[in-house]
């Protein structure tokens, strides 16, 4: 039993289809209206059937009222960290604090290289992400004296102006599975964002994720609860239950509450573009799962 005591977040992972691009906007607006907490988008600038994620996020921010928005996750090799920091802060100010930063060290290096960016080994990509997080936090630290000076192996900043600061204490959530990246998250990030379908051994794989993050956090003098545990999920609604997240909404709620209480996962991001599924997830699954978790937390 692991529980970091975070409030639960329910979100969606919407395909940023380029044509018709309105499909993604409609799904995000549906998620906002349905009362979900988060709408997130994958980011693969080298895949041309997808619309540019940051542009879409900015547009969606203007078309929604309450929902929080993040990349899931943004491709760091394609997006310089200082630009990421500034644009996230700017959009956070425009939205009154509805933006979070989802970051990834880069996948699909053939595509990244094809667009003219440098190919990194997995180890180098972790180091680059480590540097990027430092640069981002420097940019956001608008009140610190002097310009930003950062002399890294992958990123260099020589005296650039600080700011703007985001409108709220923005989280950096990182997509990760492997020990080195997880230890970086425990030390320096605010959340881990893996996908259930890629977890080795299924949901039990989260035990390893928590072990690495918690250890690194404690080593760095942080509370393990400083790192939110998020999860991308897939599922189908059906009248009869046939497996994990395959069944009626009540069963989904039980499945997710179980994962929340067992593994400390506090954000469930469902991959769907379908307004009807979004409505069911927001209207039936989320409140029921929250109730189950609250009841269990009260009991213990």
């Amino acid at each position: 039993m692991t529980d970091y005591g975070h409030d639960l977040l329910f979100g969606v992972f919407v395909t940023p289809t380029a044509e018709p691009v309105r499909q993604a906007v409609d799904a995000a607006v549906a998620a906002d209206r349905a009362g979900l907490d988060l709408v997130t988008f994958q980011d693969h600038p080298y895949v041309t059937r997808l619309a540019d994620t940051w542009t879409l996020m900015s547009y969606v921010a203007a078309r929604t009222e309450r929902i929080r928005i993040s990349g899931n996750v943004l491709s760091l090799p394609m997006r310089p960290p200082a630009v990421l920091a500034r644009s996230h802060a700017a959009l956070d100010r425009l939205t009154g604090g509805r933006i979070e930063m989802g970051l990834g060290a880069g996948a699909f290096w053939d595509g990244i290289e094809g667009m003219g960016q440098r190919r990194l080994t997995p180890g180098q990509a972790v180091d680059a992400l480590d540097e990027a997080i430092q640069v981002i936090r420097e940019v956001w630290d608008a009140d610190a004296p002097g310009g930003i000076r950062f002399d890294g192996e992958y990123y260099r900043v020589a005296g650039a102006k600080r700011g703007p600061a985001p409108a709220h204490d923005m989280s950096i959530w990182v997509g990760a599975y492997k020990p080195r990246m997880l230890r970086l998250i425990g030390r320096a990030a605010d959340g881990v964002l893996p996908s259930l379908s890629y977890l080795p051994g299924g949901i039990e794989g989260y035990t390893e994720i928590n072990r690495h993050i918690d250890g690194a956090a404690v080593e760095a003098g942080r509370e393990p609860a400083a790192v939110r545990r998020l999860l991308n999920i897939d599922g189908t609604f059906a009248p009869a239950g046939t497996g994990f997240l395959k069944g009626p909404p009540e069963q989904w709620a039980e499945d997710l509450a179980g994962v929340a209480l067992e593994h400390g996962v506090s954000a469930f991001i469902l991959a769907t573009d379908d307004p009807a599924v979004i409505a069911t997830y927001a209207g039936e699954v989320a409140p029921a799962a929250r109730e189950l978790v609250a009841a269990e937390r009260d009991r213990t």
Binding site: L56, A90, L91
Partner: peptide
């Protein structure tokens, strides 16, 4: 300005 792109994308939605 420095965040012209983000701002313009936002404006497109408004």
């Amino acid at each position: 300005g420095p965040d012209a792109w983000t701002t313009l994308s936002w404006i497109a939605g408004r």
